[in-house]
Simulated assay, not measured.
Amino acid sequence: MGKLLLTAIGRRVQLARHFISYGWDLEGSDLRADECAAQGLVKMIHEVPRYNEEGYYDRLMEICLMREIGFLVPLFEPELIQLSKLKKRFNDSGTLVFVSNEDSLRICLNKYNLACFFKENGILTPDTLNNERNIDSLSKWVVKPCTGMGGKQVFIATHEEVGFYSNKVSNPIFQRYIDGQEYSIDVFVAEDGQVLSVVPRLRLEVRAGEVSKSITVIDEEVTSLTLELLSKLKLFGPATIQGIKEEGTGRFYFIEVNPRFGGGVPLTIEAGIPYAKFLKADYRQEPNTLYPYRAGLKMLRYDEAIFVGS
């Protein structure tokens, strides 16, 4: 199948298992190889500096050259923009990096930029402000960081509470609260722009910013709206899109776009989406078709420990 490297592999055991089951020669990278839960499964885990330390990207390049890595899939959002800048360098050395272009990433990874993009393109999204001046008392507000991953520092506040919570958040934005059912939508876009899969799933329970209970659904409206969004936001590779279907009106609001494999993607894999096939250079799918998946499949996550000797 070929050699594949997953960065920040850490706890991504189910994702790693998926690629291995399809015959990929899988390796990983992380800060501490001896503290990665995936170490018992992955052939080799390479220790690397932090993404913002000198030498990190040179070390990734060194690993790819030394180990003859054909495909690199980054899993850590803060490294995506720099890897996009270096994509040609990696490609010229024989490693295809599954990362979107820099312009798209700068939209997705800044939640205020993304809200402006939605609005400019006629895509429904909650009112989003980058300061407190125009906050009204017509609804609650979500106070959250403008950048970042994992659902940290996210608070739901009344008009009176916004000022209090904004002091607890780094570089906050303010988004009107929408009462309704939360969705995650796992998608995969080929290098030529063809959308290979769209899988909506309901977020039934979230723990520490990552979905712990979820179920796949067939929702033609959400799928159609997602395809419309993807036609305007040029992505490459995996992404997980967040949205909310408003209770009462049924209107669907897009909230976030995470241009990487999301934490809940094992459910989509189990529902039948073969990401390991999508990465193959010779993979082909009929134009204007989406890969089928099993609806009504529920994921109930739990913690599992592995034990390693000193």
Rank of each mutant, 00 (worst) to 15 (best):
N121M: 09
K298D: 02
V162M: 14
E160L: 07
M149H: 10
D186I: 10
N134Y: 12
R32V: 00
Y112I: 15
L96N: 06
Y56W: 04
I156S: 15
E247A: 14
S21N: 04
G237R: 06
S137W: 11
G148W: 06
Q14S: 15
K140Q: 15
Y283F: 15
K3P: 01
I215A: 04
E246L: 10
V222G: 01
I306H: 11
I241R: 10
N171E: 08
V206Y: 02
S166C: 12
G28A: 00
E47H: 06
P145T: 09
K213Q: 10
Q153W: 03
P287Y: 02
Y51P: 04
D127S: 10
K213V: 08
D179P: 00
T289M: 06
G296F: 14
A16K: 00
S212M: 07
E62G: 07
V154L: 06
N110K: 05
H46K: 06
I178M: 07
G10H: 09
S170V: 08
L233S: 04
V48E: 03
K232F: 12
A16M: 01
F236N: 11
L41T: 09
T223W: 00
V195G: 05
F76E: 01
C36N: 02
N110C: 15
V308G: 06
D34I: 01
F261K: 04
K234F: 12
K119Y: 05
